[in-house]
Design a protein around this nucleic acid. Structure first.
Length: 187
DNA sequence: CAGTGGATGCTCT
DNA sequence: GAGCATCCACTGT
């Protein structure tokens, strides 16, 4: 399954399938260990009330980055899925850092590996992603997506930090990973 | 530790 | 003018 094929399908299939892929931006990044699905007709999705200047990329072709500013401070990055017009995306919530840790440390201003990419705002800062990357094609440099050797084992849980449709289990975490944004108590 | 609140800006009502 | 798909520092145990 190629990246292009994966993101062209339903976001409900694509989101868990993206866990385990390695995302690199200019050679810096890591293994995707936590994502959330934002589906068409999903009250928690930015696209729910129709196309606007901010969410326009969500309505376009799959495999693009949708980047938006969160709480006035952070950037959050999504992978657009499904066919043009459907407006679905996968929020990247955490990576296990594997490549370019020193560049991430420089951008983040912290040294502890656990704090580099464990959270959507941290992840974008570590990879250097901003609103300037909104709409970028993830199949072209400087982006690189490397499939996992074997499909990861994934747990589904409720999404984080939302109020509407908070009960559907559309957050997907690699089982046993200690790099997710809510792994503080995990063994 | 756990819980709380401030920072900060943009989008949409 | 409200409400965020967040993070971090600070409080009180």
């Amino acid at each position: 399954m190629t990246f292009r094929q994966l993101v062209a399908g339903s976001v409900h299939d694509a989101a868990p399938a993206l866990v385990g892929w390695t995302l690199l931006v200019d050679g810096v990044g890591g293994r995707i260990v936590e994502v959330e699905a934002y589906a068409p007709d999903d009250p928690a999705s930015h696209s729910f009330r129709g196309k606007t200047a901010r969410n326009g990329v969500m309505f376009g072709p799959p495999g693009r980055l949708y980047v938006y500013r969160s709480y006035g401070i952070h950037w959050c990055a999504n992978v657009v899925c499904e066919q043009p017009g459907t407006a679905a995306a996968v929020l990247l919530r955490a990576l296990e850092p594997t490549h370019g840790l020193d560049r991430m440390r420089g951008r983040r201003g912290v040294t502890e590996a656990r704090l580099l990419c464990s959270g959507p705002g941290r992840l974008t800062q570590a990879l250097g992603l901003t609103g300037a990357d909104d709409g970028a094609d993830l199949s072209l440099p400087p982006f690189e997506l490397v499939p996992p050797a074997a499909r990861a084992t994934v747990d589904a849980t409720p999404r984080i930090g939302i109020t509407r449709a908070a009960e559907v289990p559309w957050r997907f975490v690699e089982r046993g990973s200690s790099w997710s944004s809510r792994a503080r108590r995990a063994a």
